[in-house]
């Protein structure tokens, strides 16, 4: 079935693809994680569980850097605390430092009320200002989306 699909739809080399997304999720939640999808206001949300216990949710998306999309994954636990931000694909010649562990780890443990603002609770990277602001904005919007969806009872 996969082969048939791949034959119909052009899969591009730099799409994160299922493998990159699952690798990222497994790194965060362990190898036995089960990934389901649900739709919240037409957005696709990944629901992460092991056996019958809910581990959290994740979103994958793009945000424009200087001229190319930066593909990110944001994962939260059931109480909407940030588990991690992952950069699945970075395409531009400058600013790739946003993919570094040392920068991404600042997001971990942030709650739904964290400001997520560069220069306040998120330290920037000199010479990578555009990418730093782009990814931080994407995370802030995603956290806001999660909060809305949870209030609507869509995240279960």
């Amino acid at each position: 079935m996969l082969l048939a699909l791949a034959g119909v739809m052009p899969v591009r080399a730099q799409d994160p693809g299922p493998a990159k997304v699952t690798a990222s999720v497994r790194r965060l939640f362990g190898a036995g994680v089960r990934i389901d999808s649900l739709h919240a206001d037409s957005a696709l949300v990944l629901r992460l569980a092991r056996n019958d216990s809910l581990l959290g949710f994740a979103r994958v998306g793009n945000v424009r850097g200087k001229d190319q999309p930066i593909t990110w994954l944001v994962a939260v636990d059931p109480s909407l605390r940030l588990r991690d931000v992952d950069i699945l694909v970075y395409r531009e010649p400058y600013g790739g430092e946003v993919a570094y562990e040392a920068w991404r780890r600042q997001f971990r443990g942030k709650g739904p009320d964290a400001p997520l603002a560069v220069g306040r609770d998120i330290q920037g990277i000199s010479g990578a200002t555009i990418s730093v602001n782009a990814v931080t904005l994407a995370v802030r919007r995603t956290m806001a989306d999660f909060a809305v969806w949870r209030a609507k009872g869509l995240l279960r």
């Binding site: 899969v11 693809g17 696709l44």
Partner: peptide, 10 residues
């Protein structure tokens, strides 16, 4: 899982 995620990535 791959089948599930393929439409997402595309």
């Amino acid at each position: 899982l791959s089948f599930l995620l393929l439409p997402l990535s595309l």
